[in-house]
Nucleic acid binder design. Structure first.
Length: 271
DNA sequence: AGTTTGACCCGGACGC
DNA sequence: TGCGTCCGGGTCAAAC
């Protein structure tokens, strides 16, 4: 489940691997991945070079010469760079031939990921519903105060809301709440100013660590190099059996429709 | 209008 | 081995 750190890792890896490479040919094996028609996708991208690599929330933005390719990995999307002699695998859905004989392959077991093309000047409109980036100045205590003041929803659910803050998913939401000793079910409007400071700093701390570790390997996530477990953030609660701090058995509940792991002893519920 | 719920996209995993 | 059912999570739409 690629979240901010995984998306960033994929992006960094791809930048090192394919910056300034030109797309010479494209094949779409599973059409719904691409939001426009195959013809127009191919026409607009063929001949274009991968010029810069950016991220907005969980979206990857490949800036080409004349257009931006936006890609969302959803649950299990991955990119692989392979020599074109290597046979395609079952779940490769979009293939980009590059001018150096290699291929960029989009692989997605669940087929949930999406790609679209946007004009460069349209970017502001396309991402207007996304909240601030966790490391931006805009993500500050005043912003949180304003956003959370009337929110009765559990804080975990708000953390997952991409319009509150961009890029956090289920795994890191659990980890952030563990780091700030807060029960995931705590109504968001019960957080005081200190809690908000804690939330911001915990979020940044956890994400920074995860980025440094190259993302988290859980389920089938691998970076575009196919690195599977060499760099791995060790999780403290998500999918864990016992609390690494007090040894209590980690509980699994559902919050906002999502599987949620927490330590009932370390994480305090404010009602 | 803000909030909450559910459908959707799939195939792997699991139970019988 | 085969079949049916459930599950997961981000996003969007519909319902409240």
């Amino acid at each position: 489940m690629p979240e901010f750190p995984e998306v960033q890792t994929v992006l960094d890896t791809l930048e090192r691997q394919i910056k300034d490479r030109q797309i010479t040919k494209i094949k779409i094996l599973y059409k719904p991945i691409v939001s426009c028609s195959e013809t127009s996708f191919r026409k607009k991208l063929t001949g274009q070079h991968f010029r810069s690599f950016r991220r907005r929330g969980k979206y990857l933005l490949f800036e080409m010469d004349d257009i931006t390719l936006v890609s969302h990995l959803r649950m299990e999307g991955k990119y692989f760079i392979m020599d074109d002699s290597v046979p395609l695998s079952k779940h490769d859905h979009v293939v980009f031939w590059l001018d150096d004989g290699r291929q960029l392959r989009y692989n997605d077991v669940r087929k949930f990921g999406r790609m679209e093309l946007i004009e460069k000047q349209d970017e502001y409109d396309d991402f207007k519903d996304l909240g601030p980036e966790p490391f931006s100045k805009a993500f500050n205590v005043n912003y949180c105060k304003d956003y959370l003041k009337d929110k009765k929803a559990p804080i975990k659910q708000v953390l997952l809301d991409q319009s509150f803050v961009a890029g956090i998913g289920n795994i890191y939401a659990d980890e952030i709440l563990f780091a700030m000793n807060t029960d995931p079910r705590t109504p968001a409007n019960r957080l005081d100013e200190d809690d908000m400071k804690e939330l911001i700093s915990s979020a940044r701390k956890i994400l920074k660590k995860a980025i440094k570790a190259g993302g988290t390997t859980i389920r089938s996530y691998t970076s575009s190099l196919g690195v599977t477990g060499r760099f791995q953030l060790s999780l403290k609660v998500h999918t864990m059996e016992t609390c690494p701090v007090c040894g209590t058995k980690i509980r699994k509940i559902t919050v906002g429709g999502r599987g949620t792991y927490y330590c009932e002893k370390c994480q305090i519920l404010k009602k």
